[in-house]
């Protein structure tokens, strides 16, 4: 459980930092009149959506931190047999990086009012993401063909479970991306989609980050770190 506890400490640090900006030591009964805080003039929806995404990413982060916690506790048991990581995963990782780059491209284009850039970025980003998902499915099939079934060892079970959870989040991102693209298709202007493009880009980078962490976990690179975490609590 130490991974999730560390994650929560991180969240608590952010929350504490934010709260420290909010004058929580003020004596409200002495303060009559209007006072203005930082979010003044920014109640319009893009800002809210961005904060909403931030909160959502914290939730998703918590989810994956918990998966990693469970993984690190379960891998301690004697029956754990690490499975060989299919080489295809490296290709998939590359594709996911490209996807993220494409979304960043779209975001930069959106800031420069470059409609063609947005379309190119979104479409190629989406295409790369789909390729990534297909690649993940192929990796599953390769493992299955090699006899690494989901129930035959906990390492396999975790591999399928964690990649599936990540894949589902990519699919959710594709839905959001599809809606943004559909808006463009219907002739929306750049400023109408700028916020959505930015949110997609943030989400993509986040999923890439999560994937890199998961990849490190699945390939055993982070074993040392996991060991340290485990010793922290036991």
């Amino acid at each position: 459980m130490s991974v999730i506890v560390l994650f929560m400490v991180g969240i608590a640090a952010i929350a504490g930092w934010w709260l420290s900006q909010q004058r929580l030591t003020a004596k409200p009964w002495l303060e009559e009149g209007v006072s203005v805080d930082l979010r003044e003039e920014s109640t319009a929806s893009p800002q809210a959506a961005k904060i909403g995404l931030g909160v959502f990413l914290a939730v998703v982060g918590s989810l994956f931190a918990l998966f990693i916690s469970a993984y690190s506790m379960r891998m301690n048991m004697v029956d754990w047999r690490t499975l060989p990581v299919p080489a295809l995963l490296w290709f998939n990782t590359g594709v996911l990086v490209l996807s993220s780059v494409a979304l960043q491209w779209a975001y930069i284009a959106a800031r420069r009012d470059d409609m063609d850039g947005i379309i190119l970025g979104l479409l190629s980003g989406g295409a790369f993401a789909v390729t990534f998902l297909v690649g993940q499915l192929l990796a599953w099939r390769q493992l299955n063909a090699a006899g690494y079934f989901v129930a035959s060892n906990p390492a396999n079970s975790f591999f399928y479970l964690i990649t599936a959870a990540h894949g589902l989040h990519v699919m959710g991102g594709l839905v959001a991306l599809g809606r943004t693209a559909a808006k463009l298709w219907r002739g929306a202007e750049v400023k109408q989609v700028r916020a959505s493009v930015e949110l997609c880009a943030i989400y993509w980078h986040f999923l890439l980050l999560v994937w890199l962490v998961l990849l490190g976990l699945l390939t055993g690179w982070t074993d040392n770190f996991v060991d340290i975490c485990r010793q922290l609590l036991s």
Binding site: R23, L24, P28, V34, R39, E40, Q47, I51, V55
Partner: peptide, 15 residues
């Protein structure tokens, strides 16, 4: 969460 963070009316500080 986001409503409390973002949609408070003018003058409605956290405290």
């Amino acid at each position: 969460v986001v409503t409390v963070l973002q949609a408070r009316t003018r003058g409605m500080t956290l405290m």
